[in-house]
């Protein structure tokens, strides 16, 4: 704080702080409080708002538990988000290991650049790109057909297949970098010591490298899972018409039914239930919250 004052003087410091406070308060905290408050109120015509029927209740939340279809969608959202997280881990771990322990230093900047370039394109465009790539007569199918790997075009955008592909592509870096940081902090001598004691590569990973990178894996997994479960763009574009992501139901409540109250309740349910799910998984894998914060 005094650092900021010394460097920028009173006026600029005040502006910085006010802007940050405005952003935090007006654009993050207040809207959330507003939604939270609304999630306990019934959806009423305008002239009945504030009237005798406008009382707090848990009815909006109970709507979810009375609807097997919505609960079903929620469960599948959790399952597919978990699958996305798992696939991201399977892709990111070997890459993170390669980048932090095997790749020569001089190619690291190039690798990072290659990983970051796709992020320069907006998420919408990237998802549309996948929509095109995965289309029935799209480039992926024609390539695979041309190479003789498949005999008939594959319907990629079927069920949640397209969503999983799109989400993995969108969020894999959120898994990569925490793991990369974790493995990089491992003393290479420990890997060598394990090998010197006769350990084959897979056991060295299992006993030395993986346990060391557990906090990185955990924070990557939490991020990918939460982002996937909360994603609206990718499921909207890449899911088939019959499969719905939970966020799409929230969107329907809010924009198609115009029922912001139930929509808000669903949004908070998503947050709460995902947090519960993540906590349970963390307990199963014996990860502490403090490990992730490291």
């Amino acid at each position: 704080m005094s650092d900021l004052l010394n460097r920028y003087g009173g006026l600029l410091t005040a502006i910085f702080i006010l802007l940050t406070a405005f952003w935090l308060l007006m654009l993050v905290i207040l809207p959330n409080i507003y939604l939270f408050e609304n999630s306990f109120r019934p959806y009423l015509p305008v002239n009945e708002m504030g009237g005798p029927k406008d009382v707090y209740s848990l009815n909006n939340y109970l709507t979810f538990f009375k609807s097997p279809i919505h609960m079903n969608v929620f469960v599948w959202t959790i399952i597919y988000s978990s699958l996305v997280t798992l696939i991201c881990f399977i892709i990111a771990y070997p890459l993170a290991y390669y980048m932090s322990k095997i790749a020569p230093d001089r190619i690291i900047p190039t690798l990072f650049l290659l990983l970051f370039v796709p992020l320069w394109v907006s998420e919408v465009l990237r998802s549309f790109a996948w929509f095109i790539i995965l289309a029935l007569k799209g480039p992926l199918n024609s390539t695979l057909l041309g190479l003789g790997i498949i005999e008939a075009p594959v319907r990629w955008i079927m069920g949640f297949r397209g969503v999983v592909i799109g989400l993995v592509y969108t969020y894999v870096l959120f898994m990569l970098f925490p793991i990369y940081n974790a493995i990089q902090s491992l003393d290479t001598n420990q890997i060598e010591a394990a090998e010197d004691l006769g350990s084959p590569w897979w056991r060295t990973h299992l006993r030395v490298i993986l346990p060391h990178s557990k906090p990185g894996i955990a924070s990557g997994a939490v991020m990918v899972f939460m982002l996937s479960a909360g994603s609206i763009l990718v499921p909207t574009l890449l899911a088939s018409t019959t499969s719905r992501w939970f966020t799409e139901i929230i969107q329907q409540w809010m924009f198609e039914s115009q029922d912001w109250n139930t929509g808000s309740a669903y949004a908070f349910l998503l947050l709460i239930l995902c947090t519960v799910f993540v906590s349970v998984v963390m307990r199963v894998f014996r990860v502490k919250l403090s490990d992730i914060a490291k």
Binding site: D187, Q190, A193, L197
Partner: peptide, 12 residues
């Protein structure tokens, strides 16, 4: 068997 300069014991 090699004993490393920093020993490289497995801390976990």
């Amino acid at each position: 068997a090699l004993i490393f300069q920093n020993l490289a014991l497995f801390p976990l």
